[in-house]
Simulated assay, not measured.
Amino acid sequence: MPAAATKPKPNRSTARRPVPMDLPYAPTAKRPLPPGRPRDWYITHNRRLKAMRLAIALLDSGVYVPNQAHNETIRSTAERVGIRPPSDTTCHMVRALMRYSR
């Protein structure tokens, strides 16, 4: 019998691990945004990135339904992960992203 056949397979579980919410948010490496776009494009782009970070943090903390994600919940999650409090528009965008995450 070949040696490879007797080796145990590594555990490649797809189960989610709990994410500690008490640690500050650690941003990924930033790249410069493309020059020459209108100012509104940059504002919308940064708003989408913030909404995505917040939606992921909410999903990791156990808030899976947009109806559970009230503005206060989203803002407290932002404070917990070290992001500035989002506007009402960004909170609306977070709920929209959560609707499509199902």
Rank of each mutant, 00 (worst) to 15 (best):
L59Q: 10
R48M: 13
R53Y: 07
T44H: 14
I56G: 08
Y25Q: 05
D40T: 12
I74H: 05
N67V: 11
E79Q: 14
M52L: 15
G36Q: 04
N67K: 13
T44Y: 12
Y64Q: 14
Q68R: 04
D60Q: 13
D40P: 06
I83F: 00
N67I: 10
P35S: 07
Y25F: 14
D60S: 12
Q68A: 08
G62R: 03
T73W: 02
R53D: 09
T28Y: 03
E79S: 13
G62V: 02
T77N: 09
P27Y: 00
S76R: 12
P32L: 00
V81P: 00
R48Y: 13
V65M: 14
I56N: 10
I74E: 07
T44Q: 15
N46A: 03
N67E: 14
P24F: 02
V81C: 04
P34A: 09
P35D: 06
L59Y: 08
N71C: 05
T28A: 09
E79I: 13
H70W: 14
R39L: 13
L58Q: 06
L49W: 12
K30W: 06
A69Y: 03
G62H: 01
A29W: 00
L59N: 10
E72A: 12
L23N: 01
G62Q: 02
L49I: 11
I56T: 13
V65C: 13
R80S: 06
H45P: 01
Q68K: 05
R80M: 08
H45C: 09
R39K: 13
I74C: 09
I83N: 00
L54G: 06
T77D: 09
A78G: 08
L59V: 08
I56S: 10
E72I: 10
P66T: 01
W41D: 12
P38L: 11
I83M: 08
I74W: 06
N46D: 04
A55V: 02
L23P: 00
N71E: 12
T28N: 04
V65A: 15
R48W: 12
I56R: 12
T73H: 06
R53I: 03
R48D: 15
R37E: 10
M52I: 12
P34S: 09
A29K: 02
P34Y: 07
P27H: 05
P24T: 01
G36I: 03
V65R: 15
L58F: 08
E79L: 14
R75P: 04
T73V: 15
N46L: 08
I56F: 07
R48L: 13
P35M: 04
N46K: 08
G36F: 00
P27Q: 03
N46P: 01
K30F: 02
T77Q: 14
L58T: 05
N67M: 11
E72M: 09
R37M: 11
N71V: 09
P34H: 07
R47P: 02
R37T: 00
T44P: 06
L33Y: 05
S76H: 10
A57E: 08
G82V: 05
R53V: 02
L54M: 11
V63T: 11
A69G: 07
I56C: 11
R37H: 10
A29N: 01
G36S: 04
A69E: 04
L23M: 07
W41E: 12
A78Y: 05
G36L: 01
A26P: 06
P66E: 11
V81L: 06
V81I: 15
R31L: 07
K50A: 07
P66Y: 09
S76A: 11
T77A: 15
A78W: 01
